[in-house]
């Protein structure tokens, strides 16, 4: 606690601005007014992306209408990986700088990220059956995403498993940092090993192997999923901060009364 106060006093020190914004009360003041807008935009973009992909995007030359599953499967996969990267990032801040907001974020990212990973796995299985001929195969891509799901579940359990919350936050942060090794494995699995899963369609360095009328709904849906993820995490963090404040006030009132 004491170190935070000192650091905020000297804004020129590295990381001081982070201490400034990592204050839960300040986070609540900044984020709460934006939540209704963020929620509205997330819903609109996600709905547009999903409907565009489901009903209006053209069918694929090879996979026919089954390629429509892409518009939910791929964004869910991207969000689940980015979500884990965020989880690892806040865990890093939690371990090194002990930001209380980082622990709050870690606690709320877990369930949302796990949900998106679950959506990715289920929609992938439902895509695999009609196209490959199997719901599930143990290739490097599918296995590493399943590992990601279990990392999320382990983190959710670990962060709530201790009587002393600080111990839970520490243990869960270590798990999140160790598990980050899985992210490059997921990304490069289709290049490093022979997999049944297809290679990358979208490329950030060259041109993407997807026709433009299918790329647009994919991008819209992706932006929608990302916004939804961020909005959900922020709303849950705000709720957690308010719950904590309520608890503190109740405890203080009880102490005054006694």
């Amino acid at each position: 606690m004491n170190e935070n106060v000192i650091a905020t006093g000297r804004m020129s020190k590295t990381g001081a601005w982070l201490h400034y914004f990592a204050n839960p009360g300040r986070f609540l003041r900044f984020v709460r007014p934006a939540l209704p807008w963020a929620a509205a935009i997330s819903i609109v973009v996600t709905v547009v992306g999903i409907i565009w992909g489901y009903a209006f995007a053209p069918a694929d030359w090879q996979q026919g209408d089954a390629s429509r599953i892409m518009y939910v499967h791929v964004p869910a996969a991207w969000v689940s990986m980015s979500g884990y990267a965020m989880l690892a990032g806040v865990s890093f801040f939690s371990i090194v700088w002990r930001h209380p907001l980082a622990d709050l974020a870690a606690e709320e990212i877990g369930p949302v990220g796990a949900g998106f990973t679950f959506v990715c796995l289920v929609s992938g299985a439902l895509w695999g059956k009609p196209m490959w001929g199997a719901y599930w195969v143990w290739d490097a891509r599918l296995t590493s995403v399943l590992v990601l799901f279990f990392l999320y579940l382990g983190h959710i359990a670990l962060i709530r498993a201790f009587d002393n919350p600080a111990h839970g936050h520490r243990a869960a942060a270590i798990l999140a940092l160790v598990g980050v090794i899985n992210l490059p494995i997921i990304v490069f699995s289709v290049q490093w090993w022979n997999t049944l899963h297809q290679g990358n369609t979208i490329s950030f360095t060259g041109s993407s192997r997807i026709y433009i009328t299918m790329l647009y709904p994919l991008l819209v849906s992706t932006v929608g999923f990302y916004l939804s993820f961020l909005t959900l995490v922020c709303a849950r963090m705000c709720a957690a901060i308010m719950e904590r404040r309520t608890r503190t006030l109740l405890v203080a009132a009880a102490e005054r009364a006694s």
Binding site: W61, W132, G133, A134, V137, Q198, T201, I210, Y211, M214
Partner: peptide, 17 residues
């Protein structure tokens, strides 16, 4: 005993193909 199809990673409408 089992044959699985590995589809390519190119997506385009039928008329483009």
């Amino acid at each position: 005993s089992e044959v699985l199809a590995k589809h390519g990673s190119s997506y385009m409408p039928k008329d483009v193909e």
